[in-house]
């Protein structure tokens, strides 16, 4: 095969410049800046800072509250990822079986996805609002006073529930298209060889969905860690007080509410490292075991 070649060596460089500019200005430069400022103790009014080395990091790891928030972030990420994947999968399997009115059913499930994320977040949150929230009223029927923003566990529950609810549609769409790309004859061959639909699903269908599931696992963890910011913000209204929050939200609270730029930068560097490690781990370890047809 003949390889396409540029006549002038500067041509490819010229074509790469727009993309490189965007990457450098919006990704690398802020990242380097965060790393740099994490080594300084910043003056709250922006009049320069003092170099303190790794002290910001040591302070963080000795801070009980930071560790508590880390633990909550782990619980939050695991439950949001697990439940949004699980619900997405269950709905997709059910929708895949529906013959009559299938498109109506699918459209209804995808609706949430079509709503803009902040609006969806607000809608979800309003279900939990005190007094008039639908779910709050349901809890009240059972004699439980559900108070978002005051009670730690109630707030945690509402945050997790709304985050899951927002993420289910996208998982549903991906799982459904994954299911529909499993050849019919393979399912039929399995029907003849295996009488248990449950066993059939886990031995045949699910392994064939593995590439989809793997992709969704990564996107869902990333979603839980970062894209839930809006939901958390709407729920806490920038006043975290005694309420649960994730590491991402803590970066914002410390940096922009507390004006503690150095500590906040250190936190975001830790998050960057975490994401990097997670991605490498997932691709190295999990992808190798997944069969792509």
């Amino acid at each position: 095969m003949k390889r396409a070649a540029f006549t002038h060596p500067w041509m490819p460089v010229l074509l790469l410049i727009p993309q490189l500019t965007i990457i450098v200005f919006f990704f690398y430069w802020p990242a380097v800046e965060a790393l740099r400022s994490s080594f300084y103790l910043q003056d709250p009014f922006g009049f320069g800072g003092t170099f303190v080395g790794l002290e910001n990091y040591f302070t963080l790891f000795q801070n009980k509250e930071y560790l508590r928030i880390s633990l909550f972030t782990v619980i939050f990420t695991l439950s949001v990822t697990f439940f949004s994947l699980a619900f997405g999968l269950v709905f997709a399997v059910k929708a895949d079986k529906v013959l009559r009115g299938a498109s109506t059913y699918k459209t209804m499930l995808m609706w949430v996805y079509a709503v803009a994320p902040p609006v969806a977040g607000l809608l979800g949150v309003s279900l939990f609002y005190q007094g008039h929230g639908l779910i709050t009223q349901i809890f009240a029927l059972f004699g439980y006073e559900f108070v978002v923003g005051v009670n730690y566990k109630d707030t945690a529950f509402a945050m997790i529930a709304v985050s899951i609810w927002k993420q289910v549609p996208i998982n549903f769409i991906f799982f459904l298209s994954g299911l529909q790309s499993v050849p019919r004859s393979i399912r039929e061959a399995a029907m003849i060889e295996n009488g248990s639909p449950f066993n059939r699903f886990w031995t045949i269908t699910f392994p064939l969905l593995a590439p989809t599931a793997f992709f969704l696992l990564i996107t869902n963890i990333t979603y839980s860690l970062f894209d839930t910011f809006g939901v958390i913000d709407v729920m806490l209204r920038s006043e975290p007080g005694n309420n649960p929050m994730t590491l991402t939200y803590k970066v914002y609270v410390d940096g922009f509410r507390g004006n503690e730029l150095g500590g906040s930068s250190a936190q975001s560097v830790i998050l960057m490292v975490l994401v990097l490690a997670l991605t490498v781990f997932q691709f190295r370890l999990i992808e190798r075991r997944i069969h792509y047809t």
Binding site: S185, A189, N194, L208
Partner: peptide
């Protein structure tokens, strides 16, 4: 009766082998 209970075996046009299983496991599955 369900297909699995009819004591039949079927060979499909596109073979319908399980792509994630070895030849051995494909045959052993049933």
């Amino acid at each position: 009766l369900d297909p699995a209970d009819r004591d039949i075996a079927m060979v499909f046009q596109n073979y319908a082998l399980y792509p994630h299983m070895t030849v051995y496991n494909n045959m052993a599955y049933g």
